[in-house]
């Protein structure tokens, strides 16, 4: 008979994890559909009762999004325009019922190539805080997700928070998604971009594309090319097909490789145009 633990304290949770072969459960919005109608076969650690893991706090040089913070918590939080991309993505995660249950960190740990949360958090330069019985460490989100449904989380480790560093300049972000319908569907392309700006010029840019490679990817050549550019509604024209080189979209029943590539470029340009147009 598998064991089910729902501790109230993080230390207790880490002790449970130490025993190994345990599935971590938070909102359950990925876990339950995958196990519908089947009996439980593995030990479960339910982290939803650990109070300290939920909520968003404002630190001196960063924001901290606790691991069990739900998409609805995020949508309702008072956060600066930097978080617009993440907020827009949150509104398109599943439907409202999913947003009420599903967690931001769970979306990262599940590591689907089409995870809505990953591109906006990549564009925020987010880090993942990982705890274990031995202590805690921070790892860049880019290094955290290593493949289709694979992360660096080791046995005995728990993602406890997502850390978003505060930018040096004023910053804004935006998110666009293309799917066969708006909700409850696997995305064809997702684009998230953050622009840091001063004096009407781009000072730094971070652009991430999801659903076009096993792991969402940053477009670093494009990011570099944008620095120093005028911030206006024509910003998207700076994006070139060659900038999409990190992507490797798949061919399947939802869309072909060629269409995904072209749609990604159109969405990148549109995201940048819309960011540039905000006055």
């Amino acid at each position: 008979m598998p064991a089910y633990a729902r501790p109230a304290r993080l230390e207790d949770a880490l002790q449970v994890l130490k025993r190994g072969n345990t599935t971590i459960l938070a909102g359950g919005t990925d876990y339950y559909p995958a196990h519908a109608d089947k009996p439980l076969r593995e030990d479960i650690l339910d982290i939803s009762a650990i109070r300290g893991l939920r909520g968003i706090s404002d630190g001196r040089d960063h924001w901290r999004i606790g691991a069990t913070t739900t998409w609805t918590d995020l949508i309702e939080a008072k956060l600066p325009p930097l978080f617009d991309a993440l907020r827009l993505a949150a509104r398109e995660v599943g439907g409202v019922q999913i947003q009420n249950r599903g967690t931001v960190a769970g979306n990262l740990c599940n590591a689907s190539p089409a995870a809505d949360g990953i591109p906006p958090l990549l564009a925020l330069d987010a880090q993942v805080e990982i705890a274990s019985d031995a202590g805690s460490r921070l790892i860049a989100l880019e290094q955290f997700v290593v493949g289709n449904r694979r992360t660096v989380l080791g046995s005995g480790e728990l993602a406890t928070a997502v850390i978003v560093p505060k930018p040096k300049c004023n910053a804004r972000s935006h998110f666009l998604k293309l799917g066969t319908r708006k909700y409850l569907v696997i995305s064809i392309v997702m684009v998230a971009a953050t622009i840091e700006h001063a004096g009407g010029k781009v000072r730094a840019a971070r652009i991430a594309v999801g659903a076009c490679s096993p792991v969402a990817r940053r477009l670093k050549k494009l990011e570099a090319a944008l620095v120093g550019e005028q911030l206006d509604a024509a910003l998207g024209a700076k994006a070139l097909a060659s900038h999409l080189q990190p992507l490797s979209p798949i061919d399947d029943v939802r869309a072909s490789r060629g269409y995904r590539t072209e749609a990604a470029l159109a969405l990148v340009r549109r995201t940048l145009d819309q960011l540039g147009a905000i006055t």
Partner: peptide, 12 residues
């Protein structure tokens, strides 16, 4: 599955 077979929804 409903992920691959696109049934439209009210918002469309």
């Amino acid at each position: 599955s409903l992920m691959d077979y696109c049934v439209p929804r009210a918002d469309q």
